[in-house]
Design a protein around this nucleic acid. Structure first.
Lengths: 230, 230
DNA sequence: AACCGCTTGTGAACGCCTGAACAAAGTCGC
DNA sequence: GCGACTTTGTTCAGGCGTTCACAAGCGGTT
């Protein structure tokens, strides 16, 4: 069984696979044993054909005429997305947002465990957040080396995000989730994903304005925004 | 004056315009009067040619041989993205994440003002968060009608997100930012943008594993830093 | 006034992703 | 045991977004 990696999986597909996995976990808790692509796609908010295409990157994993085994597909997706093993994450910048993330149970339940919380503010250092003690950023390098953390989450103000990022990379972190509103530059071999909250709101504001200002037919209106048809 | 909206602006472009606007605001504060597309693109983490194409949707707004006027471009982007006018937002679900968002200064500075915080938990209702008092969700309809809020932010648990969404839409909200890990279904004419934090982490975990497990040539590695958020 | 360098704006090619139609395959009913 | 129905997996075409490359235009200089 050496193969099973014939082609590479597009990043957009990987993101959707994570969504399917979550839906499947819910179905498994509900006692369901099988699902069709149509039902799964409806729950995930995507097109059934696209869902089947996504799953086909993993090789055949359904039964024609029946559908997909909930437990079987869940296990295969879990393995494809990185396995069960817990991944150590370091969080830098324990403000309001950082505290919320440190407490967010949705991470721990998916195998992501925060092993260190760092901040520069002496008033914050020492506090307990989500079961961990906030430590000074000076301990960043030692903490990463000690815990073998592979993921860094940056929730600092924009002006120090690049510096923090550089230190994380130098310490060995190769995956970074950035909430600071700046474009981080990193060497090749390091992945960055950016979440920009105010940009999301601004896009909504634009769509709102466009709707009001241009009543005549504009873009071909999506029949359904996100959810399933019928 | 004939409106200058000959073509529609792709959503991906709109998201980047918001980023450019933020960079320009920083440059204006720094006293800069002009920028080139190369410098602006570098600061925003995109390709210079793509940036020029994005800006071209607004019509010619630069001077050849010189670059873009910082203040002029900032004003034009501001207008294109919805103007200066403040937009009223309602936030439902005042947990850790909701509280963090209610306090986030990045929203208010861009014209987004929370006019109502709602929660079901009696222990949370009545608390002061970000200068507002948390109110029970029963007041949702009245609040939206009274404040003419156009944007709703959902930070509730997944199982009640759809119900909250339906009530927001029925009350008149036409733009929704969803942090709950479910696909919301809405009628045509309502826009939903979804932020899924655990999916972001899971994509990073996948890329990490792929790097370790498949040393042979994979996808053409981006030379520059920022992968992008589609 | 004309030239030259610099930067924008745009046209075209490339690649990726999405959405729909078709064939393969397995199961249920008789 | 055989036929028909259901559902997957795949193939094909279409659209969208991104990238490269070049012509057009403006300022400064001689």
């Amino acid at each position: 069984m050496p193969e099973s990696r014939p082609r590479i999986i597009p990043e957009a597909t990987v993101a959707r696979l994570a969504v399917y996995l979550r839906v499947l976990a819910g179905l498994a808790d509900g006692g369901r044993s099988h699902v069709s692509s149509g039902e799964l796609a409806s729950a995930a908010g995507v097109n059934p054909a696209g869902l089947r295409k996504d799953l086909s990157y993993l090789g055949p994993c359904g039964v024609r005429g029946v559908g997909y085994s909930v437990a079987g597909l869940r296990d295969r997706l879990t393995e494809a997305l990185g396995g069960e093993r817990s991944r150590a994450c370091v969080l830098v910048g324990i403000g309001r947002l950082g505290s919320a993330l440190a407490d967010y149970s949705g991470f721990a339940s998916r195998g992501f465990q925060f092993v260190g919380l760092l901040d520069t503010d002496p008033a914050t250092v020492g506090h307990q957040v989500g079961g961990l003690t906030v430590r000074p950023v000076a301990e960043l390098e030692g903490l990463v080396a000690e815990t073998q953390a592979t993921i860094g989450v940056i929730t600092t103000p924009a002006d120090v995000a690049q510096t923090v990022c550089d230190r994380l990379v130098a310490a060995g972190v190769r995956s970074i989730l950035n909430f600071a509103p700046v474009a981080l530059s990193v060497p090749a071999g390091v992945d960055v994903r950016k979440v920009d909250l105010s940009v999301e709101l601004q896009v909504l504001a634009f769509l709102d304005q466009q709707r009001d200002g241009a009543p005549p037919v504009l873009a071909p209106v999506r029949a359904t925004a996100q959810g399933g048809v019928r």
